[in-house]
């Protein structure tokens, strides 16, 4: 057999008249061409802006938008803004983290129910999860403002059972802001969780119970570990937007519940202090990146996408 392979060069096995041979090079280039427009868009309007943000955060703060800024490599911007705004920054992480945990608890119950308990209503329940979120974010948040108002039904009920004092309120408290965050970002938690749980073979859980696990043990030894990829992507997809959000803090909270988003927004649009706003944005981004990396490492699920 090897002899005939050696003979190949004498009688060319791949003669020039092979017009249709798929050219591997051309195929490779097609990939680049398909990718090019979208990648250019992302490069120009996502990557380069990030670079401008870094630059902006190092400008001389004494300039203004109208007169222009000077590049001063002012790393002190970071210290000064951190000094001024560390409270909202910490508060954002705290609110975002707590909201994410509550979302995880609620979302897990819901995702589990849809995946395993809904039977033929699975599709309908999934639609019901997503449907409310096609109504404007702001309009929904305004509804919560109405629901949580001081003489509203919820506050009255809580006062009646003495969970709130007679002059207690929900609006303009951390409770309202966190509740708003939970509500608004819940689908970001439910959908990845559902995708993960739905993939779990139900027979594995039966096998666990066959092997002497009570349901609760079976859950923690089988279901939960297998759903971890969904838990990881769900918590990230919830935490990241929740930390950066300022709509809930603005509509449901008071200045005491200002989050970092409120600060950045007002530094840009009201105070026109671009360097400070840029520095805060950068810090938020780096903080989130660091936390995400740490979290993904610990959770051990590298195949996030």
């Amino acid at each position: 057999m090897t002899a005939s392979t050696a003979a190949a060069p004498i009688a060319p096995a791949t003669p020039p008249e092979q017009p249709d041979r798929p050219p591997a090079r051309k195929r490779k280039l097609t990939g680049y061409w398909l990718l090019l427009p979208g990648m250019l868009w992302l490069a120009v309007f996502f990557v380069i802006p990030f670079y401008s943000l870094v630059a902006t955060s190092l400008y001389d703060r004494t300039g203004s938008v109208l007169q222009g800024y000077d590049m001063a490599w002012q790393f002190s911007n970071y210290w000064h803004t951190l000094d001024d705004y560390w409270r909202p920054l910490v508060r954002s992480l705290w609110y975002g983290g707590l909201a994410t945990l509550i979302c995880l608890a609620l979302g897990y119950v819901l995702a589990y129910a849809i995946a395993f308990k809904s039977g033929r209503w699975k599709n309908l329940m999934l639609v019901l999860v997503i449907a409310p979120f096609f109504t404007s974010f702001l309009v929904r948040t305004l509804s919560w403002k109405l629901l949580l108002r001081d003489d509203g039904f919820i506050v009255n009920a809580l006062q009646f059972v003495h969970l709130l004092g007679s002059d207690g309120r929900l609006l303009a408290t951390p409770v309202a802001v966190i509740a708003g965050l939970v509500y608004n970002f819940l689908p970001f938690m439910v959908l990845p969780l559902f995708a993960s749980i739905d993939k779990i073979d139900h027979r594995l859980i039966e096998a666990a119970s066959d092997l002497y696990s009570r349901p609760i043990v079976g859950f923690f030894k089988v279901t939960w570990p297998l759903s971890l990829p969904g838990v990881v992507s769900g918590t990230l997809l919830t935490f990241i937007p929740a930390v950066g959000d300022y709509i809930n803090a603005e509509l449901l909270g008071s200045p005491k519940q200002r989050m970092i988003g409120n600060v950045i927004q007002s530094l840009f649009t009201d105070a026109n202090d671009y360097p400070a706003a840029g520095a805060l944005s950068m810090m938020l981004m780096l903080l989130i990146l660091a936390m995400v990396l740490f979290y993904v490492r610990r959770a051990g699920t590298e195949e996030l996408l």
Binding site: P49, A55, V243, D245, L284
Partner: peptide, 25 residues
Amino acid sequence: NLLVFLPMASPEIVMGSSLLALFVA
């Protein structure tokens, strides 16, 4: 793949402010 993933992992406030920084610059 990374470039596609990153915008989904960035807080909107950061994306918004960096775009603004670019437009102004």
